[in-house]
């Protein structure tokens, strides 16, 4: 067994344990943190497969953005754990069936004569200095520049649509205008009233 295989099995074991803990951890914050660990280990396995771009994206997008949001949500919501655990046994048969079906499907696809491991020879060693991030970027900005730009336009539509559909100018919000606040003069806030002095005990 070479060093690569040892590292792979190490990461795979961590990944499996982390994934199991995601669904078994009692504390939702712990579960979310284990999910972060699972993503991170999966990224490491991708790195072993020389897919460093995917690994970086997984860490940046899922660990860096999605999971942080997830943690915020979990911490802010007061989740009643006992309510969530209710009905575990009644859902188990269906869940187990779905799980077993998925395993069977994966075996059929991965072990079959069309898609099996021997049908997909590992790609030739691209040699030192090869960067698949660079290659992806090259393709994306040359051959596929037109669909790439279109995808960007679709994102712009999503932004415009989301804002157009959700922004509400509510009348009852007590928002402040900072410029007005800075420009305020003493005369606007304090009114000096001159009153005649009165005698004590009058």
């Amino acid at each position: 067994m070479n060093i690569e295989a040892i590292v792979f099995y190490l990461f795979a074991a961590i990944l499996l344990i982390a994934a199991l803990r995601v669904i078994t951890a009692r504390n939702p914050v712990h579960a979310a943190l284990f999910l972060v660990l699972a993503f991170f280990t999966a990224a490491a396995i991708w790195m072993l497969l020389r897919a460093e771009f995917l690994a970086i994206v997984l860490v940046l997008v899922y660990v860096g953005a999605v999971m942080v949001l997830f943690l915020f949500v979990v911490m802010m919501l007061d989740i009643n754990l006992d309510r969530l655990r209710e009905g575990f046994w009644s859902y188990l048969p269906l869940g187990a069936t779905v799980g077993v079906l998925m395993v069977i499907e994966m075996v059929l696809v991965l072990g079959g004569k069309y898609f099996g491991a021997e049908q997909l020879p590992s790609p030739a060693d691209p040699g030192p200095g090869y960067s698949n991030t660079k290659e992806l970027g090259r393709l994306l900005y040359t051959d596929y520049v037109y669909p790439f730009e279109l995808a960007a336009v679709i994102l712009l539509v999503a932004i415009v649509a989301a804002i157009a559909l959700t922004i509400r100018r509510r009348r009852d919000t007590k928002h402040q205008n900072p410029a007005q606040q800075v420009m305020v003069k003493r005369a606007d806030r304090v009114r000096l009233v001159s009153m005649p002095s009165e005698k004590k005990g009058g």
């Binding site: 596929y144 037109y146 669909p147 279109l150 679709i154 539509v157 999503a158 649509a161 157009a164 559909l165």
Partner: peptide, 20 residues
């Protein structure tokens, strides 16, 4: 790919317009 992206660009804009 471009056919699909064009279709999505059209459809997404239309969904938003209907919901406007």
């Amino acid at each position: 790919l471009t056919l699909y992206l064009g279709l999505e660009l059209l459809s997404l804009s239309l969904y938003a317009l209907v919901a406007l």
